[in-house]
């Protein structure tokens, strides 16, 4: 195992691809979720929830930037990673790109819960990353994430209390749960990074995910994280009297979970492999609109860099 993967010039092709793949998973999830959260600004059910979600969006944008900054070391700038990137190259889970139906606050709350539990687990698996810049960022991000989960659970409990709120939660759960599984799906490597990918969607290369763990970039496999995620979200959602479409319980144990995701449990578009819903391409057009309209070739800075 490499002692340190910090120096970008010393990375071999395998290490570079693993690093890029991991960082794109992390950053793209945060960036796209933030884009969706901001749609609630001035539309959330109360002033407090409006401010809370807007603030969570700002947190996620900050975290996306911390991860994108590390990609800067391997030559990818904000322009390449956001505004001039092929939308098919984004590797976020499709859970974060789905549009909200008008006024469906239960969706926003549940989605945030499903995502934030998964995020907490993957951050935990990055604490001892062999890449120092990754490890150094985890503490900061975790300290800001704690509130997100608290906020989501607080709202879930209120909505689940009865009546229409509970029904809306159940609908959202039926709809979102298959997409939440894609949080733990393997990634196709970045375009052009590997001939095996052939630059085609769905060309998932399981070796890349193995490399991420073998190189010590992250110390848990997708399956391990998925299993732990199930063991947290399933009992919790059941305690709110919600019915899980799939509960992941092993045959014999009441609280033993197995993360065995079959094709039938997954949605058609998984994000990690480069396949996305139509809503993603619309969202991409929207957030790159001004950049294109103004014929920008680089991202705008508040102030010029000093000479």
């Amino acid at each position: 195992m490499a002692a340190s993967l910090e120096n970008p010039d010393e990375l071999d092709e395998r290490e570079r691809t693993a690093l890029k793949t991991l960082l794109k998973r992390l950053a793209d999830d945060e960036f796209v979720l933030a884009e969706r959260y901001t749609e609630w600004q001035v539309r959330a059910p109360s002033l407090e929830s409006d401010l809370a979600l807007a603030n969570n969006a700002q947190d996620e944008l900050g975290h996306a930037r911390l991860w994108y900054d590390v990609l800067g070391d391997v030559g990818l700038e904000e322009r390449d990673l956001v505004y001039e990137r092929d939308p098919g190259d984004f590797r976020h889970s499709t859970l974060v790109e789905l549009p909200f139906e008008e006024g469906d606050w239960a969706d926003a709350v549940l989605r945030s819960y499903l995502y934030d539990v998964a995020e907490d687990l993957r951050l935990e698996a990055l604490v001892d990353s062999t890449h120092p810049k990754i490890a150094d960022r985890v503490g900061k991000i975790r300290s800001e994430e704690e509130y997100h989960l608290e906020h989501a659970q607080n709202w879930l409990e209120r909505l689940a209390d009865g009546g229409e709120g509970r029904e809306r939660l159940q609908d959202a759960l039926d709809r979102l749960f298959p997409y939440a599984f894609t949080l733990f799906e393997p990634c196709a490597p970045p375009r052009g990074a590997n001939e095996a990918s052939g630059d085609e969607p769905r060309a998932v290369d399981p070796d890349v995910e193995d490399d991420i763990v073998d190189l010590g970039l992250r110390d848990a496999t997708l399956e391990e994280m998925g299993e732990e995620w199930l063991s947290i979200v399933v009992p919790y959602l059941e305690s709110l009297d919600l019915e899980l479409p799939v509960d992941g319980r092993a045959d014999d144990g009441a609280d033993e979970f197995e993360f065995e995701v079959t094709e039938a449990m997954l949605p058609e578009e998984r994000g990690r492999d480069g396949t996305h819903t139509d809503a993603w391409f619309d969202l991409y057009d929207e957030f790159t609109h001004t950049y294109r309209e103004l014929e920008r070739t680089e991202t705008t800075r508040i102030m010029d860099k000093p000479e």
Binding site: Q58, E60, I141, R301, M303, D304, P306
Partner: peptide, 20 residues
């Protein structure tokens, strides 16, 4: 203080200018 600090570029630019 905050990862999503909106004044990030402003502050880093100011530091670079002042030190230079």
């Amino acid at each position: 203080t905050y990862s999503g600090c909106p004044a990030r570029d402003m502050l880093t630019a100011e530091v670079e200018a002042a030190v230079t």
